[in-house]
Design a binder for these strands. Structure first.
Lengths: 331, 331
DNA sequence: CCAATTGCTGCACAGCCGTGCAGATCGCGT
DNA sequence: ACGCGATCTGCACGGCTGTGCAGCAATTGG
């Protein structure tokens, strides 16, 4: 199987190979007539520029790595989808690196990206080892990190701290005093930040906060965290969950296992506003994060970095907005 | 920014460039001693084989396109994740083509894949236009289609018909007679097949079936379909939903808006067994599809096709299995 | 000790493209 | 008619790699 080469197109069109190349190169100088001839011949033969060869020459491809653990879960799924779509619109080729549990797989994938001279890498989640950043640095791979304060890379951050503080405030001003927060043992930096900021804000207002952790930041995590909160100690009347999945698990346990009412007995606030939050069974009050907006910022940072490689690291902020639903009404 | 080239490694190691190339080429003949020298020099300089140049020569890259619409939704999210993981394990580079709504975007993405000499393309969903298959065919791009009986490509199919028939049978043998099925107007081939097979099986058993459609095959689709089913005409006592999301929407409407009981008043069976099906609020009886198994079959087909390009098209089947939960108990 | 085989190595070429440079063509003003 | 500038074209080079082929050293067998 051989692909059509520019040589063949040139021959058919009766021009030199350079003319063909220039026809398909942005901003090159070709006479409209030859351009026309070339395009016709290319169409006839089914010619496609060999981006590999082009990449060899320019020493860069249009690949952009998207690194995520469990990209099928919760908000990350939406973020991944939004990001790939934005990248395609930009003319890039999104490579989804679904890093399993092992570090080797991640590093192997990174080497593939470097081998293919990827343009940049976007990190959605997971905590890559130091060597990851080192390798990227060493090979001039621009990095964009989402939701994590990595100082050596451009980053897009959500206002986790601000939002979490707001959660504490609205709970307290609604008269709730027995606060709790649900996080996880395998917390990403975002999850941890939300938990800590909530606790700090509550303390600042003179409120104690019970803390419960699931194993992961998912539905099951919410289940076990809520069970511990309600089976021992003083029962909370307001819980801030570090993401929506945790909140769904908690809500189900509260209602079904402890027969308590949400929001009357217990108020709940989640984070992310995944579509399930609006489902009739849940009606979760939560902080909305717009995946498309975050993706757009990430792409913007990419563009900036490509145009001015030596600019200092930048940081974009996206502010989550509290959406009120049934699980906790506006005070 | 220049990357390290084999030339430089060769110089440092005191060997020819060929030796370097052979060191990094599977199955090439190099003396252990030189190999060692080369590896050491490569390590020191931070050398990575330029896969682009390699690709130019071999006329192929290790990119594999993964085409999906709305890859963040429901079962597709899990399938996408499983597939990318399997591809990475295989040493391929998964490129996630998130086709927006427009056909142009899809075709543009396909051209990028061809331009980069992608090894193959896997289609998860969506209905690519005829020209898509034509272009792939013309450029020798192997195609693997999941969940769709495209005759011109290798394919992985779920036993939609068998499962749907089973759904009808268990409903009927449990004494349910007022059957209904929920599908969608923008049905994928899988969704349509499930709907049709269920209706056919019920008819064969002498049962009428009411049919309701949502706009899309998602939660909102289930909502509107259930509303039409219960606000007019004879109310069904058993509903087969073409996927789990439709079932969740239907279940919420049945319980919350019509105050009926699931499964006492209405039994529900879904399809896919996404994790939400096991959530306490739903407990959905549904057909399990294992994303990892499907992904493994797809990768197997890829391997086969690469080794024997002229083999006739193959078709792998994966059988979904009915998982009983609260929404409908085993008769 | 010599011949034959084996195992490596380096040369040179092929694979496909973008682009600087020099030459060719063309239009235009005088 | 002629000179000049502008526009386009083709040549040749460079970018990085894999591999056939011939040569070389080393090992083995007699």
């Amino acid at each position: 199987m051989r692909f059509v080469s520019a040589e063949q197109v040139a021959k058919l069109a009766g021009v030199s190979r350079s003319a063909v190349s220039r026809t398909f190169t942005e901003g090159a100088s070709v006479a409209p007539a030859t351009r026309e001839k070339v395009l016709k011949a290319a169409e006839e033969l089914g010619y496609h520029v060999n981006d590999l060869a082009r990449g060899v020459l320019l020493n860069q491809s249009r690949l952009v790595g998207v690194v995520a653990t469990k990209p099928e879960i919760g908000f990350r799924a939406h973020l991944t989808a939004a990001l790939t779509k934005a990248l395609i619109r930009r003319g890039s080729i999104p490579v989804l690196i679904n890093t399993g549990e092992t570090e080797e797989e991640l590093l192997a994938a990174q080497k593939m990206l470097i081998g293919h001279r990827a343009e940049a890498t976007v990190i959605l989640s997971g905590s890559p080892p130091e060597s990851f950043f080192e390798l990227a640095q060493r090979n001039g791979q621009p990095l964009v990190v989402i939701g994590r304060a990595e100082p050596d890379a451009d980053r897009v951050l959500a206002g986790n701290a601000e939002a979490s503080r707001e959660a504490a405030e609205v709970f307290i001003s609604a008269g709730r005093r027995r606060l709790a927060v649900i996080g996880s043992h395998s917390a990403t930096p975002s999850i941890a930040e939300r938990e800590n900021a909530f606790v700090a804000a509550a303390h600042a207002a003179g409120c104690e906060v019970r803390i419960a952790h699931g194993r992961d930041s998912d539905y099951d995590g919410g289940i076990v965290a809520a069970r511990t909160l309600f089976s021992q100690g003083e029962r909370p009347d307001a819980i801030f969950c570090a993401n929506d999945l945790l909140a769904f698990g908690a809500m189900d346990v509260i209602r079904q296992e402890f027969s308590l009412s949400v929001p009357d007995d217990v108020a709940l606030i989640g984070f992310d506003d995944v579509p399930e939050a609006a489902w009739l069974s849940y009606g979760l009050t939560t902080f909305r994060q717009d995946p498309a907006a975050i993706a757009a910022r990430a792409v913007m940072l990419l563009d900036r970095r490509q145009q001015k490689p030596d600019e200092p690291r930048a940081c974009e902020r996206v502010i989550p907005q509290l959406v009120f639903r049934k699980s906790f009404s506006r005070p």
